[in-house]
Amino acid sequence: MTANTGDLPTTHEQPAIEAIRQSADVAVLVVHGQADLHSAPELRERLQGVIDDGAFHVIVDLTDVSFVDSMTLGVLLGGVKRLRPQGGQLRVVVDRPGLRRIFEVTLLDRVFTLFPTRAEALDRL
């Protein structure tokens, strides 16, 4: 990554991630557009940020995402490892079958809990 991050500021599109503080211990990160190696550093930062801010559970909403690559998956996996020692959860909202398959083929659907909608993800927290 280090070699290619240099050109990101100039070519990056609209801010792709918005963070919503749902409650004291639940934060939602809504990702837009493409979640790929170019956006992965930002996602990592934001995830770090909400956890540092005290979020116990984090919901990553990928409903508006058309593309997820392995780097994004890697960032999400990093988030799980931060939350899990404290008993926190990282839930992923994904409804497109294509994206869902990405989690399935990498067996990450057993690591993250997948939900088709954000409402369902928030439901039983």
């Binding site: 992965a40 392995s70 780097m71 998956l73 890697g74 996996l77 990093g78 398959r101 990405i102 990498t106």
Partner: peptide
């Protein structure tokens, strides 16, 4: 440190 981030590429390709 970022091993887990990078290491998913090959399994992903193999899965797909």
């Amino acid at each position: 440190g970022a091993a887990e981030e990078r290491g998913l590429g090959l399994p992903l390709m193999r899965g797909l």
